[in-house]
Design a protein around this nucleic acid. Sequence first.
DNA 1: CATGAATGAGATTTCATTCAT
DNA 2: TATGAATGAAATCTCATTCAT
Lengths: 218, 218, 218, 218
Amino acid sequence: MAPVQTKETRVPKFRRRAEARPDEVLDAALQLFAAQGFAHTTVEQVARAAGLSKAAVYLYFPSKTALLAGLIKRAVAPVADLALGQIAQSDAAPLVLIAQMLRMAVRRLAAPGVMAIPALVLREAAAVPEIVQVYRAEVLDRVLPALTTLIARGVALGQIRPVDPELTLRSLVGPVLAHVLLAEVFGLHPEGGLALDRLVENHLTILLAGLAPERTTA
Amino acid sequence: MAPVQTKETRVPKFRRRAEARPDEVLDAALQLFAAQGFAHTTVEQVARAAGLSKAAVYLYFPSKTALLAGLIKRAVAPVADLALGQIAQSDAAPLVLIAQMLRMAVRRLAAPGVMAIPALVLREAAAVPEIVQVYRAEVLDRVLPALTTLIARGVALGQIRPVDPELTLRSLVGPVLAHVLLAEVFGLHPEGGLALDRLVENHLTILLAGLAPERTTA
Amino acid sequence: MAPVQTKETRVPKFRRRAEARPDEVLDAALQLFAAQGFAHTTVEQVARAAGLSKAAVYLYFPSKTALLAGLIKRAVAPVADLALGQIAQSDAAPLVLIAQMLRMAVRRLAAPGVMAIPALVLREAAAVPEIVQVYRAEVLDRVLPALTTLIARGVALGQIRPVDPELTLRSLVGPVLAHVLLAEVFGLHPEGGLALDRLVENHLTILLAGLAPERTTA
Amino acid sequence: MAPVQTKETRVPKFRRRAEARPDEVLDAALQLFAAQGFAHTTVEQVARAAGLSKAAVYLYFPSKTALLAGLIKRAVAPVADLALGQIAQSDAAPLVLIAQMLRMAVRRLAAPGVMAIPALVLREAAAVPEIVQVYRAEVLDRVLPALTTLIARGVALGQIRPVDPELTLRSLVGPVLAHVLLAEVFGLHPEGGLALDRLVENHLTILLAGLAPERTTA
DNA sequence: CATGAATGAGATTTCATTCAT
DNA sequence: TATGAATGAAATCTCATTCAT
């Protein structure tokens, strides 16, 4: 969707413009889409914000929709890759891995502009079906199964109480999602700021205790 | 489409309507907004679906936005009222109340058309600021504080381990939210169907265990 | 393509507007398309010429293309009907019928605005494939075969010398077409004005003599 | 299309081009204009088809319109020259000359790409007035008067029955025009293929018989 | 109450054309 | 000579909203 970005490792010289333009356009688009919504942002606005003419935007992206799709792909694919890599390479206990992943994800989310993406995706998914496809292909269909499997393995190993992995997945990520949406969409921050990290620690406290196999029952 | 409405006082049979019209319009709007998104639904479509002319819709609602606001208010206010009533009237233990409320909320969500509302709210919030206000006023600002207080009370009573009530609130409702959004927006259902009730039970298993004060520490 | 035009024979009262609008729009469109070409005429221009707003035009015709198609259908269908009727009902000798038809067609063409249509069709056919379909369906596929058959019958009856009916058809209508195109497209009129009728008589003189079976051979 | 013209004597291998470029651009333009129409062909497409960049096309032709004009001039001027030469040099009887010319014209038309030109001219004439001028200047104003004069001479010599020369001109060329347009624009070929030569022979049979002075009357 | 008719104000997208390199 | 980058100027089409009836 995004124009070819031959990001050759060699020759990372200086040649500005042209090379960096698509990214600049996406930056501008993210800014505006997050602030006003996709439908209420005009291509003209994006172009001006990126310091280009409207027509120039179409030089890099074939349609307004492609702008959105490219934006999402650029933002989330790396996170998904990272997460998958971590799951694949580590042989830590499932619960430990889960805790690691949550902390990592949250650290990523904290980067500027990233937190707006999930809200954006949810917001525009119905209107722009392409988004659903991109997001499912790039994130959901890759990460969620991996996490589900991770939970299932924990259960099999006796390190997690016998829960339904697929449903437990919701208990895993839901709180973070709720936190982000509450903040992004409704401006509802807990006292003392957004505190994504505190949220995760609080959540992990509950989650890990809740997932631990029952001792007393034995 | 609509039954004949003879203006004259005779012919008492066919009548009603007129009173119910606004509701019918909202029904049609919900249907369409949920399916296509607010921006992609035209007033004409809503009107036709309600069996009215476009201009007639403006007889009942001053603008397309008002349609959306009215829709949300109608859908969520009762749920919020119910929840608040339950919290106020019951003097059950906090954790018990929490479990009750989650089960109740989920039962409500299962009614046709209701589940689409949260997704709709999230989707249009940025574009239609009025939605944020309505939703905050009708739901969030009433229910969330009540729940937070409930958690805090549980902590104070020693029935809940010492967690941050505001953040824990996210752990409480997040999984349900995640479940609904995954299903509504991405069409991701767990194996064996949506199973909202199974989700809640799975979630409560983890949550209640996770919130319970630590025994072994002693 | 054109909006439904319930032109009931009863109640032909006066109710202007709305009823006559589509036709007014087509009139304006014909004027402009003929003068500037389809591609170089904007919907705005058509609308203004018809005394409407741009959007109102879209109330009656779903697209600019539909405007063109409707225009052609309205203009040529009656002529084709007339011609076919004449062929079917008359049992005159083929050559007589042919002469009749040519004279009738030319009389029709002389009506204001009609002569521009063939030129318009030829001009825009490549750009708007719909035109080709409409024109073939409404005119060519109906009239040409009828004429071909007529010629073939004349040959069979010995009233026309043994020529190829399909190719002879070109000799029949080509001169009129050339006359119209030369005038419409290049502004080339013969001395003394367009003189469509004189053209036909001149052409018929040649054609009838040329088609008559050879006498000397006997 | 045109033979390679290596200006320099050295370096005969890789080179050429440069000189032939404009012609290659016109070749590409003809191809595309004929297939899609002038308005629907972008300069970019022409450029790519000619193996150049868009900007390079502007090196050879000052505008898109100039492309079209050049195209037509290149294609039709030789035919007109040929026809005029034939008329001027031969002292055959008018009817014989006319027959010769028609056969020659048709042979020319059969060359690839040529038949599309008349249709193209007709199509774009209204939109691009320059075309009308070019075509009139290069073809019509030179060839048509010559043919008219030829017919008049035939009449004067008693070899052609007393017809109107200008109008008879339409009877002369119209059938060929009709044949070409029917085929090019509507895809209507007679049974057994396009058969331009068969068309001419059939037409000449009728035409010559039709133009011959009446014998029986005498 | 209800509607058909009408419109003003955009939004996306396309392209011929220019220019620095 | 050649090009990639950029843009100004439109053109089609959409829609929320109004109003006379």
